[in-house]
Amino acid sequence: MSISKETVDYVANLARIQLNEQELERLSRQLQGILDFIDKLREIDISDIAPTSHILEIKNILRDDTPGESLPAEKALANAPSKNGRFFTVPKVIE
């Protein structure tokens, strides 16, 4: 699988990262290397193996519907880069 600069730019945009021309160049090359390495896995015959979404043999881990402790607001908000009273605040997201 080959990866174009456009693809890297698109993924960077999804991740909200801004990349300049040199970074795009460098990351495209590096990502290509990673993907080439992963392509080695294709050499393995997996026609008899069901897709795995979890590697551990555990299932049905559930908890009872009993309320526990929540964080006090000052703790929840302690590391917020910006806040207003009991609210987290962010730059306005709609016009």
């Binding site: 519907d65 309320p67 526990g68 964080l71 009991r86």
Partner: peptide, 27 residues
Amino acid sequence: KTKTKSFCGCSTEFGSEPNSQVCPVCL
């Protein structure tokens, strides 16, 4: 209308103070 959230024990009660029903999991 479960008593607690999907994946943590925070209460689901409606109309509480802002950010009073939060914990490390749901945050």
